[in-house]
Simulated scan of single mutants.
Amino acid sequence: MTVTDTGGLRLTGLRRYPVKSCRGEDLDVATVEPWGLTGDRRWMVVDPSGEAVTAREANRLVLITPSITDSGLLLSAPDIEDLDVDRPASGPLVEVKIWDDRLLARAADPVAGDWFSGVIGRSLRLVYLDDPRRRPVNPAYGAADDTVSLADAYPLLLATEESLTQLNTWIAEGPRSADGPLPMTRFRPNLIVRGEDAFAEDTWRRVRVGEVVFRVVKLCDRCVLTTIDPVTATRTKEPLVSLARHRRWDGKTWFAVNLVPEAPYGSGVPEAPYGAGVPEALYGSVRVGDQVEVLETR
């Protein structure tokens, strides 16, 4: 969807990532749940011990395109036949590890693990987080009842077009200019916003996007995943070189902000059935073109 510039802050892009570290899907509208957009990062690739495998070490994961279907996923990748994977509604729960978090997830059909193993070249399994209420966010920044799916740390990530433009200007002026300009997909945000000064989002504390209010819990520190070209899976030095020159403090580099959703307009949160019977709190929907309002700054 093309967004006409009518002034003010607007939501210009909306993306979800069905499988952690794989390619994302562009959406026109999405439902917001307590742990992120519906369908966002509910699947994850793990090694035989259950530890998360991401594109940081398995770069070719960014070449895999997962699409959500009524029954589960359709997986596509270069030089291999597509695979339909059913969402596991029952079957074994296995312990998985993502960073410092250990939790239970449903094991997908072993055929899916074999498919990923063929693409990546090592032994892998695919798991599905049937109940995202199992994983709390970091209590240092979130509330006691905040939860997250299989995203790195928080339910949603927001980035602005103006901040990317400024970053690409720094890249063009720097020693690694051939690496740029970079697309927004390098940073894997869920919400893309236009209409403010570059890095104004650093100061936001609460924002409303369409009918949903979000807390901005912290800036996002960036890692080597941003150096992987999502089209070719090759590595570059940017954006970390330029971020280190202009956006480095506390020993880290920073781009975009992490969000936790609140109930729409402070109202009660309805519940509806979801997936394998997990009660689902629906916080409302966001749509490309929605007005974005900064409610509170820090």
Rank of each mutant, 00 (worst) to 15 (best):
R194F: 02
F199H: 08
L219M: 07
S177A: 15
R208G: 09
V216W: 07
E201P: 06
A178N: 03
L182Q: 13
E211H: 08
A198Y: 04
L225F: 14
A200V: 00
D179K: 07
V217H: 12
G195M: 11
R188D: 10
R215M: 08
L219S: 07
A178S: 11
R186N: 15
R194D: 05
C220T: 05
V216P: 02
G195V: 03
T185Y: 10
R208F: 01
R208H: 03
E201R: 15
V217I: 12
C220F: 07
V213Q: 15
E201G: 04
E211L: 09
R186Q: 12
V213H: 14
S177T: 02
V224Q: 10
F187K: 06
I192N: 01
S177D: 09
A178E: 06
R205T: 01
V224P: 03
V193T: 09
R222E: 12
V216L: 07
F187Y: 10
R186V: 04
T203K: 14
F199K: 09
M184S: 03
K218F: 00
G180Y: 06
F187C: 02
A178D: 06
C220K: 05
V193P: 08
F187I: 04
G210F: 07
R186M: 12
E201N: 12
T203L: 11
P181T: 05
I192E: 02
T226D: 14
R205E: 12
T226R: 15
R186C: 06
P181Q: 06
G210N: 13
V213W: 12
M184G: 06
V209L: 07
E201V: 01
I192A: 00
V207M: 08
G210E: 13
G210K: 15
R194I: 00
P189Q: 15
R215P: 05
G195Q: 13
P183L: 14
E196F: 02
P183Y: 06
V212I: 04
R222P: 03
G180K: 15
T185P: 00
V209P: 01
R208S: 05
L219D: 02
R188F: 12
I192K: 09
V213K: 10
P181F: 04
V224L: 12
V193H: 11
E196S: 13
V193S: 09
P189A: 15
N190K: 08
F214P: 03
V212Y: 05
R208P: 03
C220P: 00
S177Q: 14
V193K: 14
R206S: 02
C223F: 01
E196A: 10
D202T: 11
P183D: 10
F199V: 05
M184T: 04
A178R: 14
I192Q: 05
L219Q: 14
A198F: 02
V207S: 12
R215F: 00
C223K: 06
V207C: 10
W204K: 09
A200S: 13
I192R: 11
V224S: 08
R205I: 01
K218D: 05
F214I: 05
V212S: 06
V207F: 04
